[in-house]
Design a protein around this nucleic acid. Sequence first.
DNA 1: ACCCGGTAGTGACTTTGGTCACTGTGCCCT
DNA 2: AGGGCACAGTGACCAAAGTCACTACCGGGT
Lengths: 231, 231
Amino acid sequence: MSEGSEAILRKTPLFASLTETEMHALAPRVMKRRFQRGELLFGEGDACTGLFLVASGKIRIFKLSPSGREQVLAVEGPGSSFAELPVFDGGNYPAAASASEDTEVLFISRKDFQNFCREHPDVALKVIAVVGSRLRRLVGIIEELSFTTVRQRLIALILRLAEAGGTPSKEGVRVELAMSHQDLAGELGTVRELVSRNLSRLQAEGFLEVDGRKIVVRDMAGLKREQSAAE
Amino acid sequence: MSEGSEAILRKTPLFASLTETEMHALAPRVMKRRFQRGELLFGEGDACTGLFLVASGKIRIFKLSPSGREQVLAVEGPGSSFAELPVFDGGNYPAAASASEDTEVLFISRKDFQNFCREHPDVALKVIAVVGSRLRRLVGIIEELSFTTVRQRLIALILRLAEAGGTPSKEGVRVELAMSHQDLAGELGTVRELVSRNLSRLQAEGFLEVDGRKIVVRDMAGLKREQSAAE
DNA sequence: ACCCGGTAGTGACTTTGGTCACTGTGCCCT
DNA sequence: AGGGCACAGTGACCAAAGTCACTACCGGGT
């Protein structure tokens, strides 16, 4: 039965600082829901029903273009909340959310959360902080889309993975892509083919060793240079 | 001496709902500052010193690429506030701000604003609302950058201008560009030349009549069709 | 074994975006 | 009148992004 709801609440920045009694007031309003890999939590433009917290798994927040392309705005893991905003301003969800693995989420209805915020003003301040970091991330995405090439974005993403979850080995840093090229393309704001091609090219240039979803970064320093290179 | 500070405070969503006494508490903490067209209020990465409110004029919030290209994130007019976020999370400004006309702003130091929010929790809720709409706009920019062409973005912008500030005439809707092609390029996330070319092309196709910064939209309906056309 | 659906790699091509280098134009200044 | 300056238009390129169509591989199913 995985974890109790309270344990999860404790792990999310929004509610981490609540007292025992506050926690007990909140916990009964929380619903646990499960979603399977690929399932949609809500679509873009849906009316906002409440706040979500990720208990386990991963949620992709993304935009879908008319032609079917995806642009990922955020990937939220355990402890992250999302959809805070429409809860407050009453608007619709500005993007869609789907489970990229089997996922458990906690759900708090819009009303309950609003009331709770009114009674606990410091939670409102936390909301601002969370939304703030989200805003910074979006600005980062805009910067990347506007100023960099697919190649550079791909390199940046690999470097991030390598630094976060890479395991050093004799030949370089081993990285595992947890997703398909299709999904990778969504995160980079491009199409599958370009991911494939750029990956091949980076291998041909000797920066990487690619084997399916396993990548060995042979030359971190070189990649970092490529990131900013005007070629 | 233009307007009194309180009159301006009344016009900003953040403070519009304050009582007289609250307003009197806040007003003395507000500083009025002037900036000339082109002047920089702060640069990207600068430490955040406080909150700004636009009294008159226009402020561009933008990112600058290493190669000198601009990407505008927002243009704020009278009554808008900006830089709310770094005030809260204590981080640096994520983008630069400059005056795109001669501008008067009100400035509230970080400390004063934070204290004021603590004493007036409903202001914190307003901050969330303001930040929320900003977030939606950023998502909109990402969507445009990721899914549309320069041509489509240009069309969208012209249509927006036409619907907001256009004056209908016998030949079509007259629109005045309040900025150079250079600045337009910044808003669209591209370069001057492409703005120029796309504008010429739209004229050649009969959608527009262009004369310097004056544009006559001859065929609104047609433009709207072009916006989504796969060509 | 066989077929299938999801996933990857790639060649050939088109369109879009961006760069460079100029030219032209209008305006302000002295 | 002439010089300088910001701004706009454009031709010639080149590089990046995206599309289409196809092949191939892998891992389940039944």
